[in-house]
Computed example of a mutant assay.
Amino acid sequence: MDVRQAPKFPAWPQYDDAEREGLIRALDQGQWWRMGGDEVDSFEREFADHHGAEHALAVTNGTHALELALQVMGVGPGTEVIVPAFTFISSSQAAQRLGAVTVPVDVDPHTYNIDPAAVVAALTPRTKVIMPVHMAGLMADMDTLAKISAENGVPLLQDAAHAHGAQWQGKRVGELGSIATFSFQNGKLMTAGEGGAVVFPEGQTESYEMAFLRHSCGRPRGDRRYLHRISGSNMRLNEFSASVLRAQLRRLDEQIAVRDQRWTLLSELLGAIDGVVPQGGDVRADRNSHYMAMFRVPGISEENRNALVDRLVERGLPAFAGFRAIYRTEAFWEFGVPDESLEAIADRCPNTDAISQDCIWLHHRVLLAGEQEMHATAEIVADVVATA
């Protein structure tokens, strides 16, 4: 263990009297599920408004948000969903659990976001949805993806689990014309421990109403006679979680502004380190939420990368290995896979393979610290990489 003093970073999650008051408010309602209280309804209105969407539907977690959105969009047996190969496994499993085939495609080596050219190459008559993931809150190329979507009649589903409050050319996630999903898991930019949301842009009220039915066991609002209209599941968020999320939402913008300032500095410092390449962004993404501070050490082996992460943790940084390519997990191959070998998928995803091997990320609470901590963080990374 290194005996030098580690930099001090804020704790996460963050909370104060706003969360306490919200929990008491939910408790005092005497009704703690969404059908009897006001917290979930209020949170949905506030979250939709914050993201420029017509509707928001709060659900149990981000994985369920993806699964629900995909089902509403017609994904099921006989269909395919294109996803980036470099992402958290839920992006893939949400489609696979509906009986669809997940088709992984390569990502841009600079932004780590889905490569539009790879999307075009993977389109087939069975493609039902294209799922861009806004990696670490740095938004994917929504202009090119929207053009591909329109030309091929295949809708987009934004996996915005990292992108609360982000914007693309001045437009918020809910203003980009496609359904989007969010996660409120404990590490996310706003959290109630777990939770998720699906946001619906203007003109998709019918999809929202379908999603509401499916997230509530197929049961319409106000039903007293068990008139379940369609098949569904129980994905309803509870009132206590919604009360916490309302408080979390109120401080989101201020935290994003701090993270963006700190990332501007930290990425410059990391980029000056020999052998380190920070994640790049797209200038058209004019507000990035920075869920992670990501960087690569090109050429390092996976084993040495993992050892480097351990060393960073010993030095006091909340560091993690980058996501494993989804096709290099056992879970991916259980069901709903394309008719290709692992090697064939890897051959067409060279950027994903490289990033999965050499990428490291730091928890976003690093970016809530002061400028001094950014310099200390870069110094630790430089020292550890130099001695790796």
Rank of each mutant, 00 (worst) to 15 (best):
M1E: 01
A11E: 12
W12S: 10
A18R: 15
R20M: 13
R25D: 15
D28H: 10
G30M: 12
R34A: 15
D38I: 15
V40P: 13
E44S: 08
E44V: 07
R45L: 10
F47V: 12
A48Y: 05
D49H: 13
G52C: 06
A53H: 09
H55E: 10
A58H: 12
G74H: 11
P77C: 14
I89W: 07
I89G: 04
S91E: 10
S92G: 08
S92Y: 04
A94D: 04
A100T: 06
V101C: 09
V101N: 10
T102F: 10
T102H: 09
V107M: 10
D108P: 05
Y112R: 05
D115Y: 05
V120H: 04
A121I: 03
L123C: 10
T124N: 05
P125D: 02
K128E: 02
I130C: 07
G137I: 01
G137V: 00
G137P: 01
G137T: 00
L138F: 06
D141W: 03
M142P: 01
M142G: 05
K147D: 12
K147N: 05
S149V: 07
G153V: 07
G153I: 08
G153D: 05
V154Y: 09
L156E: 09
H164P: 06
Q167L: 00
W168C: 00
Q169G: 00
K171P: 00
G174W: 07
E175N: 09
L176N: 04
A180T: 00
F182R: 01
L189C: 08
M190H: 02
G193R: 08
E194G: 01
A197E: 02
V198C: 02
Q204T: 13
Q204P: 02
T205H: 07
S207Q: 13
M210N: 05
G222S: 07
R224P: 14
G232M: 08
N234F: 09
M235Y: 15
N238R: 10
S241T: 08
S243E: 05
S243P: 10
V244I: 14
L245G: 10
L245Q: 06
R250T: 10
L252G: 06
D253I: 06
E254P: 03
I256Q: 03
R259Y: 14
D260C: 15
L265I: 12
L265N: 04
L266N: 10
L270S: 03
A272H: 02
A272D: 09
D274L: 09
V276W: 02
D282P: 00
N288G: 03
N288W: 02
Y291T: 01
Y291E: 02
A293N: 01
M294V: 14
R296N: 11
I300S: 07
E302Q: 13
E303M: 14
N304F: 14
N306C: 15
L308S: 12
V309P: 11
D310G: 15
R311I: 04
E314K: 05
A319H: 11
A321W: 02
I326T: 08
T329C: 03
E330Y: 12
F332Q: 00
W333N: 06
G336W: 09
G336M: 06
D339Y: 13
E340R: 14
L342W: 14
A346Q: 04
C349D: 01
N351R: 04
T352V: 12
D358L: 03
I360N: 13
I360P: 13
L362W: 00
H364V: 02
V366L: 03
L367R: 04
L368T: 04
L368R: 03
E373V: 04
T377V: 11
T377C: 10
A378C: 05
A378Y: 05
V381A: 13
V385L: 06
